[in-house]
Every structure is written in structure tokens, then in C-alpha cells.
Design a protein around this nucleic acid. Structure first.
Length: 743
DNA sequence: AATCCGTCTATTTTT
DNA sequence: TAGACGGATT
């Protein structure tokens, strides 16, 4: 009956902590979300704090939604007034409410990564920058990196000509965004941070309000997010941070695990609680995970345990090639399904997306339904972006970025030269492209004039009608539907465009109760608009556009179907499956070769492996291949060091340990697809005199240990072989002297 | 405006 | 190997 029933002692302690800062080290599968949401419910229920006083931050919309759902289930009162959302969503909300103070138009548009890159390119072009020397992607990376460190262009120190120039580009980019009313993702954070630091009244207001700040996945926060939290916490408010340093796998995008230690130190955190009881996996899987992660040096320290039994051993499989590995996985999946597991219980994980290809091929050949995570999401599709760009232009004519996207799409005879003229005219008058176009008369103006009238007609045609109808109108009036109808592969695109109308419909429906997005728009603007009815400066449209930018949409269709789940180890974080295959456990792949040079990089790979392993509930398979086709070339790999880091007691090898010797009969009984089989055959070693070894063969060296022959040259006394010893590196060995033995 | 062809590159991803 | 992209061609 009580909220607190069925919590274990540590969970209970965390939930009922006094009003002081707390850091909860929540291991994988330890009930992290439960603690977080119950804490909120408990705070409210015991009357310690009103829902208004709570701010809860997550990284993904999915996590935010789940949190809200669970809180609503626990609390009879409604959750209105509570701020639960992503860092970006919450910042968006504040910036909309205080756009004037933040120096932004109310209808500022949020750029996603693609849009941002387009703006960077546009700026580079306008400044005649050599894109070879200053690559747009690099510049974008630089800008985002600086913003995530809290630095404006003027704050970035540049010592050489190149960085000086890059900083200038950063400044020019920001200026362009300001002019167009555009805000990129890190800008949402930085702008909000600056707003609160600069504006004492607002800061005081929010500090008064949010007495309790709860943070999910704290190990993933970057420096700016940490400072933002610190600012909101002020002197009197309480931060309840939940995270797991062992699951920090996003260093490459700015996450700073150090924030956990910094938080503990800077806030003199009096409560540090470890949630170590795992409710997900059997003992052997946890033993494997614990042993593995213990090889990392810099940890806050934690050891998972379970009340469930040991369960099954960790199965390990060595394949001759990636093709065989995939083929084996497919076969194993089939027998698992025969045992009664459903396909949705099974996940195949890998380090990089390229690895999915072979596995898909094998599953497809075996007739096993599968679903690959990742790839384009709904709001990232070009047809959807085109439609949104029309809507953006209706909301804000000054948005050059939107203008450029649709001025000649569908094609209407406004070529590159006309656009250039427009840009020149706009630059001269220091005006937007829209205004330049509207004022343009004569010569090049005919088709441009048509476009201007088209947009004006669209604006008139959508005024005062409900958002979904406005979207539908735009799809027709813009000619997008017509255009895709005549395109060969347009059917899917048309479907997506129609789906956009549905998205608008559910947006209008769902946003009404919670009103989070609306609150963002109307907070300071007085009366809320009539439900879903568009108007001149249509808040519904603006909110919908923000929603589209912040919520990139479901990963893929077909979520409901019963299928084997294929995904990278990264995307598996937070999920769990009865059966997990971790494939491609080879040196150079997992750990990835580009990570092993620094210790931090290697430790992060190990954490990634830890994440992968701890996804499994009942059975874990680890597999690797001696040979793998990568970038069109066959690579010979040795087994990942991570396999050695798992205790032998929990391992069960399905192939002869140490590999090399294969049961040929088994292969004949189950040959992989011909194409892959051919690739898998090690080629003869150069034809010049028979070597005692074969390329691809596993060998042992007294000093370097286990390795694989990668290539060979010479013959007789000159015969040399190149051997990949994994950690020990690649070595050329003179066969006459090296004491190589077949493994 | 669409198509073709050569060049280049090649972890991990959310907002 | 394959896909993405930019430049040149039709």
C-alpha cells in the first residue's frame, strides 16, 4: 500500500534521505528509476515539498516520459507544475518564457545537428572560406565543444593562425544564428545558463522555486550541464543525483564522469548510497561483469550481487570468420526459439554499426525476423524536414535557413544564381532573404515572386485553423505531396508526410493536459490560446516545431513485431534482454583500435563491454571471429582482452578454447552462405615455397603469446611472417629464428 | 534539373 | 566493400 513497500534497505535509505545533497551510485539493474521516481513521490506525499518545487532532469525524452508516467501512477495528485524533462527541453522552456531577457525572438527555432551543419556551411561559403582547410564538420565540432565548455567565441583562447580563424568562424556562425533566430542544441544550454547567471531576478525566482533538483544518468552530464545544475541549486536547494560511473560511455560527446567526484567534493555531499543489488541478471553474468570492470583503475567502486542463483555459464564461441559467426548466431537463435524463447527476448549487440550487415544477412537467410536499431528517425527524414521548413517560414519569415531549404524545393526554377542574387541583395540591405525576395522586382524576380506569393498564400490559408489542418494545407500547397507522387521511391515519403499530420494531431491532443510545451510558449504571454487553433504568431505551431526539433521521433517503424533486436552496445544501455549475444569481441574492434592508445579510452571501452554484458538476464553469449571483412579487406584478429578478464570459472567454451583447431565436420554440416564461406578461406601464403604456416592461422610465440598470422613473404631461410599479437602489437618474424608454434 | 562518375572515407549518439 | 558527396556532364 505504501510507496515504500518492496524497497530494499539501500533503496529505502535513498528514497527517504533528509533534505541534503545525495549521490546515488546505482549499478546496472539496481532499480535506479524506481528510486528516483519514488523519491519524488515520497517528497510530495510527505508534504516536504509541493510538486511545483521539483525539477527532474534526464537525457532522453523517453526517460523523461517514463519518469512522469511512473510518478503519476504513484501519486494521486497530478504532476502539473513539476518540471520533468531533458536538459534541452527544460532550457527551451525557460528560454521561451523569457525570450526577451535571453535576447531571442519568441519563435526562435531549434537547429538539429544536420541543420546546424547546413548553417555552418552557409557561413563558410559567405566568408569564402576554403572548405578543405576548414572542414564544416570540424568547425561544427569546434563550436559545440566550446559551447559545452561554456565558452563564447570571445572566451576562446587561440594561439595560432588556424584556431584564430576558427574562432572567427565561430563568431560569424553565432551572429548568423542570432540574425535568423536560430538556436542549436548546445546553445539552448549555454543561453539558458547565461540568462540565469546574468539575470539575478530570474535566478532568484527559479532558485526559490526548485527546492529539489533530481538528476538521472549523472555520469553523462557535461561541464556546462553541471554548471547549470549548480546555478539552479544555489545555496539552499537540494540535488539528488543518480548515476553509475561504470556505465559512462559518452565521453566522446562531452560527458564528464569527473562530475560525479566533483559533485561529491564541491557540494560536500553528505549522503552517498550504493545500490548494488541487481534484479536483472543471474550470478554468473554478474561475476563476469564485476571481474571485467574491476580492471578499470579510476572507479568510485561498486560490486553487483544478486539473490537469484548462479544461473548458466557465459558461453563463448570462436568463429573462423565474421560470416561463420553470424551464421552460428542465426542457428543459435533458431534453437532458442525452439526452446520457447520469443525472438523479442533476444538481442545481438556489436561495437559498430557496420557489423550488423553480416548478421542481418545470416538472419535473413535463416528467415528470422529482426529489427535493427539506429538510422534515420522520423523528424530527421528529408521530406519531413522540408515540410517543417515551410512551417518554419510561416512562423518566422526571417529564418534564412528554412528559406534556403524550400525556396527551390520542389524545383520551381529558382536556381543557384537566383539564390545568390537574393543573398547579395539581402546582405546589402542587411535584411533576411525573405525580405529581399519580397522586395525584389523585375528580372530574376518572376519565379521568386511566385514563391513569395505562394508562401503568403500559405500563411493566409493556415491562419486561424487547427494545427493538423494547417500542416495538411502546407503539404498540399507547397507541392511536396505532388512532387513525391511523381518520384519513383516517393511512396514512403508521402506516407511520412501523412504521418506528420498525425504527429500534429497527437501533439495537439497530448500537449493539452500536461501543457509543458505550451507553457514554454505562453508562460509570460498571458492567456492560453484556444485549443489547437493557429494564429498569426501561432504558439501551437511554434511549440510543435520545438517538439519536432527536440524529440527526433521513434527510431524505426515495426516496433511491435516479434523480432530479434540488433543494436550497438551504446544503444543497448538502459535495456535488458533474456538472451544477449555480444559479437565481434576482437582486439581492434572491441576494444576499438582508436580507443586503446589512451588509458581513458580503453577504460571507456571496458565500461561499454560492462554495459553490454549487464544487459543479459539469463543467458550471455560472447563471440569473436578470426577473420573479418572490414573496409573491403580481410583482417585477422585475436580475441578481445575482455574475454581474458572474465573469470574462467564462469566461462563455457562452445568451441575448443584458444581456437585454431576446428571440427571440419561441424562446418560441413552447417555451411554459411557461399559468398561468405569463400571470403572466410585463408588464402595460401604467397605461393613461393610451402610455409609451415597458413595465413589466418593461430600461433603461439614464447614471448608475445597468442597471435594470428596476417601475411607472409619470402621462402626458405628468408621466410618471414607478420603476426598480429593483439596487445603486443603487430610483428614481423623471421621463421628461421622465431620459435613459433601452431596454437 | 537530373544523372553520372570519380573520390574519399571508414567508432560510439542524444538533444 | 559500400555509401556519401561534390563536380561535371547531359
Amino acid at each position: 500500500m505504501s510507496l515504500l513497500d518492496h524497497l530494499n534497505p539501500e533503496q529505502l535509505a535513498a528514497v527517504t534521505l533528509p533534505n541534503q545533497h545525495a549521490l546515488i551510485l546505482a549499478g546496472a539493474g539496481s532499480g535506479k528509476t524506481r528510486v528516483l521516481t519514488t523519491r519524488i513521490a515520497w517528497l510530495v506525499q510527505t508534504g516536504n515539498v509541493s510538486p511545483m518545487g521539483i525539477l527532474a532532469v534526464t537525457f532522453t525524452n523517453k526517460a523523461a516520459r517514463e519518469m512522469l508516467t511512473r510518478i503519476s501512477a504513484m501519486l494521486p495528485i497530478n504532476t502539473r507544475g513539476m518540471w520533468v524533462g531533458t536538459f534541452h527541453g527544460l532550457c527551451n522552456r525557460m528560454l521561451r518564457a523569457h525570450h526577451r531577457e535571453a535576447g531571442l525572438p519568441q519563435l526562435f527555432h531549434i537547429l538539429d545537428t544536420q541543420d546546424q551543419l547546413a548553417v555552418v556551411k552557409r557561413v563558410l561559403k559567405a566568408l569564402n572560406v576554403d572548405e578543405e582547410k576548414f572542414q564544416p564538420k570540424q568547425v561544427q565540432w569546434f563550436i559545440n565543444g566550446a559551447k559545452e565548455e561554456g565558452r563564447r567565441a570571445k572566451d576562446v583562447e587561440a594561439y595560432d593562425e588556424f584556431s584564430r580563424r576558427t574562432v572567427e568562424l565561430y563568431a560569424a556562425y553565432d551572429e548568423q544564428c542570432q540574425k535568423d533566430g536560430l538556436v542549436d542544441f548546445p546553445e539552448l544550454l549555454l543561453r539558458c545558463f547565461e540568462l540565469l547567471s546574468r539575470n539575478e531576478v530570474l535566478r532568484a525566482h527559479y532558485q526559490q522555486r526548485f527546492r529539489h533538483i533530481l538528476v538521472d544518468e549523472f555520469q553523462d552530464t557535461n561541464r556546462l550541464q553541471y554548471r547549470w545544475l549548480k546555478l539552479l541549486a544555489g545555496q539552499g536547494n537540494v540535488i539528488f543525483a543518480v548515476g553509475d560511473d561504470d556505465q559512462s560511455i559518452y565521453r566522446f560527446r562531452g560527458a564528464n564522469v569527473g562530475n560525479m567526484a566533483d559533485f561529491e567534493r564541491e557540494f560536500k555531499v553528505p549522503n552517498l548510497i550504493r545500490l548494488e543489488q541487481n534484479y536483472r541478471s543471474h550470478g554468473n553474468i554478474l561475476n563476469a561483469a564485476n571481474a571485467l570492470i574491476s580492471h578499470n583503475r579510476r572507479r568510485l567502486g561498486k560490486n553487483l550481487w544478486t539473490a537469484a542463483g548462479e544461473g548458466e555459464p557465459v558461453r563463448i564461441y570462436e568463429a573462423q570468420s565474421d560470416g561463420y559467426e553470424a551464421h552460428w548466431i542465426a542457428g543459435e537463435v533458431q534453437s532458442l526459439v525452439g526452446e520457447g524463447y520469443t525472438r523479442g527476448d533476444i538481442a545481438v549487440l556489436y561495437r559498430s554499426n557496420a557489423q550488423s550487415r553480416v548478421i542481418e544477412h545470416a538472419l535473413f537467410s535463416a528467415g528470422i525476423p529482426y529489427r535493427v536499431y539506429g538510422g534515420l528517425r522520423f523528424f530527421e527524414r528529408q521530406e519531413v524536414k522540408h515540410a517543417l521548413a515551410y512551417l518554419r517560414l510561416l512562423a518566422n519569415p526571417e529564418d534564412d535557413s528554412a528559406f534556403l531549404r524550400v525556396v527551390n524545393f520542389p524545383p520551381r526554377g529558382i536556381g543557384a544564381r537566383s539564390v545568390e542574387q537574393l543573398q547579395d541583395a539581402a546582405r546589402m540591405r542587411d535584411a533576411s532573404l525573405w525580405r529581399a525576395a519580397a522586395q525584389l522586382t523585375g528580372k530574376a524576380g518572376v519565379s521568386v515572386g511566385t514563391f513569395v506569393r505562394l508562401i503568403e498564400a500559405m500563411r493566409a490559408g493556415t491562419r486561424g485553423i487547427p494545427l493538423p489542418e494547417a500542416v495538411d494545407h502546407v503539404l498540399h500547397a507547397s507541392g511536396l505531396l505532388e512532387h513525391y507522387k511523381s518520384e519513383r521511391e516517393g511512396a514512403d515519403r508521402i506516407e511520412n508526410l501523412e504521418e506528420l499530420v498525425n504527429a500534429a494531431t497527437s501533439f495537439v491532443r497530448d500537449e493539452l493536459p500536461s501543457g509543458a510545451a505550451m507553457a514554454a510558449v505562453d508562460a509570460t504571454e498571458g492567456a492560453a490560446p484556444e485549443a489547437g487553433v493557429a494564429d498569426a504568431a501561432d504558439p501551437w505551431l511554434a511549440a510543435f516545431l520545438a517538439h519536432a526539433a527536440l524529440e527526433s521521433g521513434e527510431n524505426q517503424a515495426g516496433e511491435g513485431i516479434e523480432a530479434v533486436q540488433l543494436m550497438t552496445a551504446h544503444s543497448a544501455k538502459g535495456l535488458e534482454f533474456h538472451i544477449v549475444f555480444v559479437s565481434g569481441l576482437e582486439e581492434g574492434l572491441f576494444p576499438h583500435e582508436q580507443s586503446v592508445t589512451e588509458e581513458d579510452g580503453l577504460e571507456e571501452e571496458r565500461r561499454l563491454m560492462y554495459v553490454a554484458v549487464t544487459r543479459a538476464r539469463t543467458r550471455l553469449y560472447l563471440s569473436f571471429a578470426q577473420t573479418r571483412l572490414l573496409h573491403g579487406q580481410t583482417r585477422y584478429n585475436v580475441a578481445s582482452r575482455f574475454l581474458d578478464e572474465i573469470p574462467a570459472e564462469v566461462q563455457k567454451w562452445l568451441t575448443p578454447r584458444g581456437g585454431g583447431v576446428f571440427d571440419e565436420g561441424a562446418w560441413k554440416a552447417a555451411p554459411p552462405p557461399a559468398r561468405l564461406a569463400a571470403k572466410a578461406e585463408g588464402r595460401a601464403a604467397g605461393g613461393r615455397g610451402a610455409l609451415p604456416f597458413r595465413i589466418g592461422q593461430s600461433v603461439t610465440h614464447p614471448k608475445f603469446g597468442a597471435g594470428v598470422i596476417v601475411s607472409a613473404e619470402g621462402s626458405g631461410a628468408d621466410a618471414r611472417v607478420q603476426v598480429n599479437f593483439g596487445r603486443q602489437g603487430m610483428k614481423w618474424l623471421q621463421l628461421e629464428y622465431a620459435k613459433l608454434t601452431a596454437a
